[in-house]
C-alpha cells in the first residue's frame, strides 16, 4: 500500500476567522454588570384596614423637596452626608421598650426618651415631591440604607466578630457545606432582627 501524503490544511486564515468572531462578540455584548440598591415594596393592603397607630417619636421623617433640599424631622435642614449619622442616632437610640416589651440591650445610643424606643419599632419615612430629581432621591435613600448597614455591621462585629457584609458574602458562596450555610443564614437572620430595615417611601406630593 502506497501511503499518500495528506497535504496539511492551511491554517493561515484561522486568525482571520477568530478575529471575525472576536469583533462580533465585542460589538454585540456589554460588559457592565448590573448593580443597584435593592428594596422590597410593601404589599397592597385591603382598603378598609386601619393603619397602625405609631408614636411620633418612633418615626424619623426625611422630606425632600423639588429643589433638592432635605428636611429632617420637620425642623432641620441637612445635607446628604449628615443624614446617615442622624439616622443612626435615631435608630440606635433605644429609649424605651421594644415590640416584645424588653428594652434594647445592644443599642449604643443615648437612650433619649424623646427619640425612638427600639430599633424594631423605629421607622424611617422618606417623603418627596413629584418633581424631585431621582438622583437626589437615590442619594438620600442610599444614606439611609447605609445607616442600617453600618448598624448591622457593628452588631455583627460585636456578636460574631465579622461584619454583616462578610457574613452575607460568605453565605452566598457555593463551595461551603450545607450545615455551615445554615448557621450563616441563622446569624444573618439574627442580625436582621436586631436592626430590621423599616424604611418607608411615601407617596410623593404634587
Amino acid at each position: 500500500m502506497a501511503k499518500r501524503d495528506i497535504p496539511e490544511i492551511n491554517a493561515g486564515s484561522m486568525a482571520d476567522i477568530a478575529f471575525l468572531l472576536l469583533i462580533f462578540f465585542l460589538v454585540t455584548t456589554t460588559m457592565n454588570s448590573d448593580t443597584g440598591i435593592s428594596r422590597k415594596l410593601p404589599e397592597r393592603q385591603p382598603e378598609n384596614i386601619d393603619p397602625p397607630v405609631l408614636k411620633e417619636k418612633n418615626v424619623f421623617i426625611v422630606m425632600l423637596n423639588r429643589t433638592g433640599e432635605i428636611l429632617v424631622e420637620g425642623d432641620t435642614y441637612m445635607t446628604v452626608d449628615q443624614i446617615k449619622d442622624e439616622a443612626i442616632k435615631f435608630l440606635d437610640n433605644g429609649g424605651g421598650n421594644g415590640k416584645d416589651g424588653n428594652p434594647c440591650d445592644y443599642c449604643k445610643g443615648k437612650k433619649d426618651p424623646t427619640s425612638s424606643d427600639h430599633p424594631n419599632k423605629a421607622i424611617i419615612s422618606l417623603g418627596s415631591a413629584r418633581g424631585t430629581d431621582y438622583g437626589k432621591y437615590i442619594a438620600v435613600q442610599n444614606e439611609l440604607v447605609a445607616a442600617y448597614n453600618e448598624l448591622r455591621d457593628k452588631a455583627s462585629e460585636a456578636k460574631y466578630g465579622v461584619s454583616f457584609k462578610k457574613l452575607k458574602e460568605a453565605s452566598e458562596e457555593s463551595d461551603i457545606s450545607k450545615s455551615k450555610k445554615e448557621s450563616l443564614k441563622e446569624k444573618i437572620k439574627t442580625i436582621k432582627e436586631m436592626y430590621p430595615m423599616i424604611l418607608s417611601e411615601q407617596e410623593p406630593v404634587k
Binding site: 448590573d34 443597584g36 415594596l41 410593601p42 404589599e43 437615590i138 442610599n142
Partner: peptide
C-alpha cells in the same frame, strides 16, 4: 408593580 405583587425591585445605580 405593587398592583401585581412584583415587590422585589432594584434601583439601578
Amino acid at each position: 408593580l405593587r398592583d401585581i405583587n412584583a415587590l422585589k425591585i432594584n434601583y439601578s445605580a
